[in-house]
Simulated assay, not measured.
Amino acid sequence: MADTAIFDVDGTLVDTNYQHALAWYRAFRRFDLVLPVWRIHRSIGKGGDQLVPALVGDAVEREHGDALRDAWSQEISPMIDEVRPFDGAHDLLLAVKERGFRVVLASSGKKDHVEHFLDLLDARELADAWTTSDDVEASKPAPDLVQTALARVSGAHGVMIGDSPWDAIAASKASVPTIAVRTGGFSREELTDAGAESVFDSLRDLIAGLDDTPLARAGA
């Protein structure tokens, strides 16, 4: 009965997860906090309000949380022009749209980054709506972003398409099923353990397998 496809952007449609991990590594270094990059990557997909305490604790969040997020913003901005869409990103949006779904790009990213990615994906005419960090108080794995995305188009039943365990956890809290892709660098087991109903290795594989997912046809 799905009528709305809710797409995560970073790590799902555009290849940004490792840039984000490096930006956070550099941000933490500014405060003499040296974390292995692999540990940071395990939390990519969470919003900065969730990532900082998860990685360095509540005390650091209270003392430096906002400053760390400002540092991350300064570190990631020069990398944005390096980002490219994953192969098949535009074609996937088009295929889902042609199957009758409302399409929402559900990002908790900065507004200027989201605007840049919309152009990079040539998605402005395909997306019925999109979100940014300005639209929610609590980021993934809280369900707020998924709920906001669904409400933005008056959708009744959504399907989440994401790359991280945090996408699946957030969607599950909103009673929305998740289709996962491995484009963000997470394993099949991590994604299914988080609640993803199906996992595809690439966006092209997902396009080829749409008929076997809740995205086969809107309302079906």
Score class of each variant (00 low, 15 high):
residue 75 E to H: 07
residue 76 I to P: 03
residue 77 S to E: 15
residue 77 S to N: 08
residue 78 P to S: 01
residue 78 P to C: 05
residue 80 I to W: 07
residue 80 I to T: 14
residue 81 D to Q: 13
residue 81 D to A: 13
residue 84 R to K: 11
residue 84 R to L: 06
residue 85 P to S: 01
residue 86 F to H: 10
residue 86 F to R: 05
residue 86 F to K: 02
residue 87 D to K: 13
residue 87 D to N: 12
residue 88 G to I: 03
residue 88 G to A: 06
residue 89 A to R: 13
residue 89 A to Y: 13
residue 91 D to P: 11
residue 91 D to H: 13
residue 93 L to C: 11
residue 93 L to A: 09
residue 94 L to P: 10
residue 95 A to V: 04
residue 96 V to I: 10
residue 98 E to W: 10
residue 98 E to L: 13
residue 101 F to G: 04
residue 103 V to R: 11
residue 104 V to S: 00
residue 105 L to R: 04
residue 105 L to Y: 08
residue 105 L to V: 00
residue 106 A to K: 02
residue 106 A to C: 01
residue 106 A to S: 06
residue 107 S to I: 09
residue 109 G to A: 11
residue 109 G to R: 07
residue 110 K to W: 13
residue 115 E to Q: 13
residue 116 H to K: 11
residue 119 D to K: 14
residue 120 L to S: 08
residue 120 L to Y: 10
residue 120 L to T: 11
residue 121 L to H: 05
residue 123 A to P: 11
residue 124 R to S: 12
residue 124 R to G: 08
residue 124 R to E: 11
residue 126 L to Q: 08
residue 127 A to V: 05
residue 128 D to C: 00
residue 128 D to M: 04
residue 128 D to G: 02
residue 129 A to K: 02
residue 129 A to W: 05
residue 131 T to N: 01
residue 132 T to A: 09
residue 132 T to G: 02
residue 132 T to K: 01
residue 133 S to D: 08
residue 134 D to F: 10
residue 135 D to I: 00
residue 136 V to H: 07
residue 137 E to R: 14
residue 138 A to M: 15
residue 138 A to N: 15
residue 138 A to D: 14
residue 139 S to N: 10
residue 140 K to R: 15
residue 140 K to T: 07
residue 142 A to I: 07
residue 142 A to W: 13
residue 142 A to F: 14
residue 142 A to M: 13
residue 143 P to M: 03
residue 143 P to C: 01
residue 143 P to D: 07
residue 145 L to F: 09
residue 146 V to I: 15
residue 147 Q to A: 10
residue 147 Q to D: 12
residue 147 Q to T: 14
residue 148 T to M: 02
residue 149 A to D: 10
residue 150 L to C: 04
residue 150 L to K: 03
residue 150 L to T: 10
residue 151 A to H: 00
residue 152 R to P: 01
residue 153 V to F: 05
residue 153 V to A: 02
residue 154 S to I: 00
residue 154 S to G: 14
residue 157 H to A: 09
residue 158 G to I: 07
residue 159 V to M: 07
residue 159 V to R: 01
residue 159 V to L: 01
residue 159 V to G: 00
residue 162 G to L: 08
residue 163 D to F: 03
residue 164 S to A: 14
residue 164 S to D: 09
residue 164 S to H: 03
residue 165 P to N: 08
residue 168 A to S: 14
